[in-house]
Design a protein around this nucleic acid. Structure first.
Lengths: 399, 399
DNA sequence: CTTATTAATTCAACTAACTTGAATGTTCAA
DNA sequence: TTGAACATTCAAGTTAGTTGAATTAATAAG
């Protein structure tokens, strides 16, 4: 399974310039809507005329709509524009070992529909047919408005390809070793597809809709099966050379510590993850299935769960410190398949190192905060990725 | 001191398109020279005509030169082009607490001149006047050929701004807290200036001239005063939101371990850095000044130095593992102010975790290798940054 | 109340840079 | 010797941007 299509450095021409400028305009509208042509021209460095032409085109495509005139001091009142939330939709599909989740999201990132389908196995044929079913139910009755479908974002657990930590087993999908997921899903869903890991998708979801709105450089610590890190730097999603960046779960935080499934000792994941919580509770004879089990235990003030949080705090603080020192983000977001209350408790318990480049005077954002997208964050993130792609300017093209 | 100018998302027009395409062409020539128009057109996605026009312009600017016709099978023999090494130069200036280094590099990254000037203090006025002196001696006699001077890359030790680890003290410059180094140096040197930290500069140096030629995603572990990490991802230099990404020296690898100057325990820097080596040797009554002292000790097989290498190996292996898991680079390069022999020994001693996304079948590059640019790598890197900037296409513009 | 000023938007002409398709060389293979 | 293959150039043609003048509508000043 290969994810990361290398980008080729390609030249630009009039057509690609227009595509880029459309994205630039959309991006600025998204950030500052409602907004008029003149202001877009000022911040984008384009002429008002160019902006005007592009807006006309985007209005034609139903991606933008007028938002009324508004007088601001002297001069002709500004004719403002905003995103047309219902002008386009994106499909998000998350593949987990045991189930798939679907989400339909509009241009504003609002969730229109979500669903869950159990998975009997992870074979590509099974996954693909469930994906088709999700597509059908998501679009059912919603296509009449002739909404544009921008594409689908498919979220699969990493790592991708055959790598040293496949022994972790619990996260990797079986039967996908030889396939090209992008091609498979594009064929099955009949629309453009991007594939990402869960942590990255979650990060993008927060950028499109959650607490990372307006941030260009931030990290998302994602509680999935293990623990993943999604990184957005200067607005660009970081994938690494082989699509496996952000595998923070197997970073060693306690040398010689607990034995991890990957064979090493002291991996972060053996302390701060659902796996860790599960094994802690299993030791006390408590089986947890879904995340709501954890929520109930937390509400009941279960001592073993509290003890786990206690134990996770140190390694997690250390992880946040290392993220800050390596990526220098505006903020670190915690989220994923863990109840909000537990995340909040974890954040409150963190003992962040003072010696970090993030311990800075005059911060405007908290060093660590909880994600706003909740538990479906990865499926939403898949869709958000598509939205993000249509709005964020790029110049390097896929091969 | 603020380094990282936020990038604004700007639109493109014919002029900016041309600028971009010039960089695209230069970049492809650099990677595959000698190369003909038709091939550039194929890989860049531009028409041959467009490439032809751009090449004519670049030849006019003396950045490219013909490299003769070469027949390859049927058809008109290709008229090949290559970079004109002497067509342009870039100045690199490294500022260390006690001295400054200068380097002049041509378009091919070849070193034309290097110098060293002692520094009495770090006040901006002192640094600036030494910088002027370096500029003068570097360009003396070399400007007659009407070579274009592309600009200067100034390398300063991070972290930038007032952050939690300023207690580390040893690396930060005094007197620069309030100034804007880019503006200061542009004024003093009368040319475009970029400012970076040493690790990043070293990484770019390896990309322009050393072992990272042709790589798009890699990391550089830099032995300076402390330990820094330079990251290049998808060809883009990673700076972080505040210009302080890559502060790996203060990542905690041995919780509760040695006390670091930053106040935390177990920082990587207390094991694997010149500071660590120095304190180890000082404990044995050996004072080291320059890096060549270390080299001599190593040649002599000094037991204390060997012991330090032994002790550094574990933390360093752990650091490489975490870099691989977080950034998923094509390779990790070791270099900086440490003798080649010691670096080689360190690399040979590494015990890399098997559980890493980098433990992959069919790797073409070694997981860890020594940098090729030697000890002046940072000053060269400053110049390389400028070369890199003229060759790497960008679309986001500085504010 | 009238007039001047300010600012957003549109109109019309202009321009830069890319694309396309035909023409021109050169070399290799039949 | 001839034709296929390929690089390069030539000459339009096209796209999408810029520029400067004209239009419109609001506020501020007289």
């Amino acid at each position: 399974m290969k994810i990361n299509n290398p980008r080729r450095i390609v030249g630009s021409n009039a057509e690609r310039t227009r595509l880029h400028n459309r994205q630039v305009v959309l991006g600025h509208v998204r950030e500052r809507q409602p907004i008029g042509r003149a202001e877009i021209a000022r911040i984008s460095g384009l002429s008002t005329q160019a902006v005007s032409n592009i807006i006309a085109e985007l209005e034609e495509d139903r991606l933008l709509i007028e938002a009324g005139r508004q007088s601001e001091g002297r001069g002709l009142p500004v004719l403002k524009y905003r995103l047309n939330a219902d002008g386009a939709v994106a499909l998000g599909i998350e593949v987990r070992p045991d189930a798939m989740f679907g989400a339909l999201v509009n241009l504003e990132g609002e969730t229109l529909f979500t669903t869950r389908e159990a998975l009997s196995d992870n074979a590509p044929s099974t996954v693909v047919s469930v994906a088709r079913r999700i597509r059908a139910s998501a679009l059912e009755g919603r296509c009449g408005k002739a909404q544009r479908i921008l594409g689908a974002g498919v979220v699969m657990p990493g790592p991708f390809g055959k790598v040293g930590i496949s022994g972790a087993g619990q996260s990797a999908l079986h039967g996908w070793e030889e396939s090209d997921p992008v091609a498979v899903f594009e064929e099955a869903l009949d629309m453009p597809v991007v594939v990402e890991n869960d942590a990255t998708a979650a990060a993008v979801a927060e950028r499109v809709r959650g607490v990372a709105t307006g941030l260009r450089t931030f990290c998302f610590l994602y509680f999935g099966a293990g623990l993943g890190l999604g990184v957005v730097a200067e607005g660009e999603v970081q994938r690494g050379a082989f699509g496996n960046a952000g595998e923070i779960g197997h970073v060693i935080v306690r040398p010689g510590g607990r034995l991890c499934a990957c064979g090493n000792h002291g991996c972060l994941e053996t302390y701060a993850s659902r796996i860790a919580a599960r094994s802690k509770l299993a030791g006390a004879g408590i089986e947890i299935g879904s995340a709501s089990d954890i929520e109930n235990l937390y509400k009941a003030g279960n001592a073993h769960l509290m003890e786990w949080i206690e134990e996770a705090s140190g390694p997690l603080s250390q992880a946040v410190g290392l993220i800050e020192n390596l990526f220098d983000p505006e903020t670190v977001i915690l989220g994923g398949a863990m109840p909000d209350a537990v995340l909040d408790h974890l954040i409150a318990t963190l003992d962040l190192p003072g010696g970090s480049v993030a311990a800075r005077a005059g911060r405007s954002t908290p060093r660590v905060q909880r994600g706003a997208c909740g538990r479906l964050t990865a499926a939403l993130g898949g869709a958000a990725l598509v939205i993000h792609d249509t709005i964020t300017p790029r110049i390097a093209a896929k091969t």
